[in-house]
Structure formats: structure tokens, C-alpha cells
């Protein structure tokens, strides 16, 4: 997949470079960011609501301006992106592992197990991601004390997003597994008498993985968006440990007073990150599976 990038159009190369850069910068936040926005001692109310450096009244110390508490927006965005990417990536990882395992079993073993897994999936897919995630996050907050705190919130968000997304992997893998299981190379190893587990994991799994990688790429963008939406609605990351969505939520309160940068820059960062991943994801999808084109659930 990486090797194929050599033949990619320029826009995809730029997007891939951008996505990798954003992810690297975000993950290395403590090394890269000018200040630590999580450290209450590092900022001062005197610096509050300063516009970006190039606007009249801006301060060169705050390239993208500061928020209502005097935090540097650039640092807040870099730290926020780290939170968003970790939660999005975590959700994809959880959803993909669960979905692949269940899909493989459902597709190869079939019967009642298959019916059970797929019916659960059907019910889940009856609801849009965002609604289900809201429900899960909302219920979790009501049941678990401190669920909205910075320690538990990321895991609840990962769980809330993955609850919906695994179905997509499971369905794809199940369908691919059923196709592969009918192919003659699988029949050949069955005739030889290889054990079921070895056929499933040694022979079928490698052949159903490419659509999974395609879905995972596109899903990463979707998961980051869902997390941002939840945080924006106030059921995601708390303001003490903000993701990009939380930052936009905070900024939204200042939009009407003309202080646009607190909302707009995190929003821009979010859109650029998601767009970059989507451009790459789209190209990967068209290249590796033309039939998947446009069939986004």
C-alpha cells in the first residue's frame, strides 16, 4: 500500500505528507508546542483574548492568538489534536479488531453464531453513529462517577465510537470471508485436511485484510469527526483536557462577540486533518477496491 504511493497524484502525496506531519507534530506535542496549555501556571489572564499575531493588537508570542484564559491557541491546538488523534485511532483499532474477528467467525462458521452477530449489527446500524455514541456516552456519564473527567473520558469516547463502527468491519470481513471460503484455494486446503483455525487465520485472513485497511483509513477520519462532534456537544473531553472539538465548543461562545480565532483555528486544524486523511483514504479506496466507491455507510 505504501509502495503504491509512488504512482499517486500530487494532491494525494501532499495530503499524505500533511496527514503524517500533523500526526507527528500532535504526538510530539510536549516537544513541539511553544507552551504547555495543560499547565495552569504557564498562562496568565492578562494575555486573554489576544488576536492572532498578524492582526492589529496581536502579540508575537501568540501566533494564533490566545483564548479567554490567556492560553496560547497554537499550543492548545497541537495538544488538542493529539487528544483527537489518539481517541480516533484508538476507536479505529478497537472497532477493527473486534469487527475483523467477529466477521471472520461469522463468515466462516456461519449458522446461528453468524445470525446472532449480524442481527446485533443490524440493530446497531439502525442508528446513526452520532446518536448511538451520544447515548453510550450519555449513559456512561450517568452510571460511572467521574466519567466526564480527563482520565475516563477518552476510553468512554473510544467505546462510544467503536460500539457503532465495528459493524462495518464485521460486515465487510464476513462478506469477503464468504467469498474467499468458496474459492478453490480454500477448498484445496480443506481437501488436504488442515484444521479450521489454520484455514481461517493462515489462509483466509490475509486475503480479507485489504478492504479492512481501506475502511480503517476512511474510518479514522470519521472517528475523529465523531469525537469532535461529541466534544462540541459537551459529552466528550472536558475543558481541562480539551480535544479539538472541546476547543471549538469553548470558542463557539465567543463567536458573537467577534472573537473568531478561538473557534476558527481549532476548526481549521480539524478540517485540514480530516480532509488530508480523507483524500488519502479516497485514493486508497478507488485504487484497491473500485467496487467500494461511494458506498460509505
Amino acid at each position: 500500500m505504501i509502495g503504491g504511493l509512488r504512482k499517486a497524484p500530487l494532491s494525494v502525496l501532499i495530503a499524505a505528507g500533511l496527514a503524517v506531519t500533523i500526526v507527528l507534530v500532535a504526538l510530539a506535542a510536549p516537544l513541539v508546542a511553544p507552551t504547555n496549555p495543560l499547565d495552569l501556571a504557564s498562562f496568565n489572564l492578562i494575555d486573554a483574548e489576544l488576536p492572532p499575531a498578524w492582526v492589529e493588537g496581536g502579540d508575537p508570542r501568540f501566533l494564533l492568538g490566545s483564548d479567554n484564559q490567556g492560553r496560547d491557541m497554537l499550543s492548545a491546538i497541537i495538544y488538542g489534536a493529539r487528544v483527537s488523534i489518539l481517541i480516533g485511532g484508538g476507536a479505529v483499532l478497537v472497532a477493527a479488531s473486534l469487527g475483523v474477528a467477529l466477521g471472520l467467525v461469522a463468515g466462516f462458521v456461519g449458522g446461528r453464531l453468524d445470525a446472532l452477530i449480524m442481527r446485533i449489527g443490524d440493530v446497531i446500524l439502525s442508528f446513526p453513529t452520532i446518536l448511538l455514541a451520544l447515548m453510550v456516552a450519555g449513559v456512561a456519564r450517568a452510571v460511572i462517577p467521574d466519567a466526564s473527567g480527563p482520565k475516563l473520558a477518552p476510553f468512554i469516547l473510544i467505546g462510544a465510537i467503536a460500539t457503532h463502527e465495528w459493524v462495518q468491519y464485521a460486515r465487510t470481513v464476513r462478506a469477503a470471508t464468504m467469498v474467499e471460503a468458496q474459492k478453490d484455494y480454500v477448498k484445496a486446503v480443506r481437501v488436504i485436511g488442515l484444521p479450521t483455525r489454520r484455514i481461517m487465520f493462515g489462509h483466509i485472513l490475509p486475503n480479507v485484510m485489504s478492504p479492512v485497511l481501506v475502511i480503517a483509513t476512511i474510518n479514522l477520519a470519521a472517528a475523529v469527526l465523531t469525537e469532535a462532534t461529541l466534544s462540541f456537544l459537551g459529552v466528550g473531553m472536558p475543558p481541562t483536557y480539551p480535544s479539538l472539538g472541546t476547543l471549538i465548543r469553548i470558542g463557539n461562545e465567543f463567536v458573537f462577540s467577534g472573537i473568531w480565532w478561538i473557534a476558527l483555528f481549532p476548526a481549521l486544524a480539524l478540517v485540514i486533518l480530516v480532509l488530508a486523511v480523507n483524500v488519502v483514504g479516497d485514493w486508497v479506496r478507488d485504487r484497491f477496491n473500485p467496487k467500494l466507491r461511494g458506498r460509505k455507510a
Binding site: V255, W260, A267, N278, V279
Partner: peptide
């Protein structure tokens, strides 16, 4: 592609910024 990459709330905020706060054309 920009469309699918932009969350609804960002679209909304940008529209408000432009058409309500900036131009004062439409209610927000």
C-alpha cells in the same frame, strides 16, 4: 471531499460568522 471532511458544527459556525456576525444578513 471538503464537504465530508467538515463537521456540521464547523459549517454552522462559519456560516454564522459570515452571514450573521460579518454581513448581518440572516438570523443566527
Amino acid at each position: 471531499l471538503v464537504g465530508v471532511s467538515t463537521p456540521t458544527f464547523v459549517t454552522g459556525i462559519v456560516l454564522i460568522l459570515v452571514f450573521s456576525v460579518g454581513l448581518g444578513l440572516l438570523p443566527s
